[in-house]
Amino acid sequence: MLRYLTALPYALPVAAVGVIVAAVIAKPVGRRLREHPVIVFFWMASVSVVIAATVTPSGHAPGLNDGLTTTRVWAWSFPAPGALFSVNWQSMNLLLFAPLGVASGLFLRFRHIVRAASIAALLSLAVELVQYMVIPLGRAQFNSATVVIGWVGIVVGMLVGRLVAIQIRKTKQKGDQGQLQS
């Protein structure tokens, strides 16, 4: 949790820029994909928030001494199931990637859902690799549990997104049928 809070001075401006860029290009991208611009905006804004929270320097990074900035950690582990029910880095990563999964699940076309989810899954892996390779970020580590937790967040989010999309379509169909009958 502290890791996310120390990144806020850097992450908030990056997230704001990403959301603004998403707002500007969502309509033309949505038109080109034949998807609703709000869904495209939600997906792109979610990507920018993930990038902002994970690939910006930690608040403590500028004060790290040389010995700490050259230390790298490569950990292979699975997430601890019990840790998902408390506030820690695993639950925070799950919550960070869940909106990206929800946005991926809201797309109308199956191929867009698959592409969005694939990009989201690759983003989870890419974030860990960037954190490992770019030492000045102050997070010189690769932890496979973090990648898996990101994927779990994406899958859980996609399930929620698909349920919401199905419910919206059912409601819209009932509204359309009601208008036809009157």
Rank of each mutant, 00 (worst) to 15 (best):
V130P: 02
R109V: 01
K174P: 02
V55M: 15
E128L: 01
I135C: 07
I135P: 03
S46T: 03
M158E: 10
G18D: 04
G161L: 15
A140K: 04
W74Y: 03
P37G: 11
A23N: 09
V102M: 07
G161M: 01
R72Y: 04
Q90V: 01
L125C: 03
S118E: 03
L163I: 09
G150L: 06
A103Y: 00
R115A: 04
A61Y: 02
V160R: 03
E128I: 09
Q141I: 01
V47C: 14
L108I: 12
I25W: 06
W43H: 04
T71S: 07
F142Y: 11
I166D: 05
T70C: 02
F85Q: 05
S144G: 07
S77P: 01
L33Q: 14
P37H: 11
S77T: 04
P57F: 00
Y132M: 06
R111I: 01
A140Y: 11
L64Y: 14
L2T: 10
V14W: 14
V49R: 03
V156S: 13
V152Y: 15
V50N: 15
V24D: 06
L33H: 00
L159W: 13
P13C: 02
L137S: 10
A117H: 00
P62I: 14
G138F: 13
G82R: 07
H60W: 11
P57D: 08
P62A: 06
P37C: 10
G178R: 09
S86H: 06
T6Y: 10
L68E: 14
I154H: 14
W89C: 05
Q167K: 13
A7W: 05
M1A: 05
H112V: 02
S118W: 08
L106P: 05
A53Q: 07
S182T: 13
A117Y: 00
V40S: 05
L125N: 02
I154R: 11
A22T: 12
N93I: 11
R32G: 00
Y10T: 15
T70Y: 14
A117W: 01
L122Q: 02
I20V: 15
A75S: 03
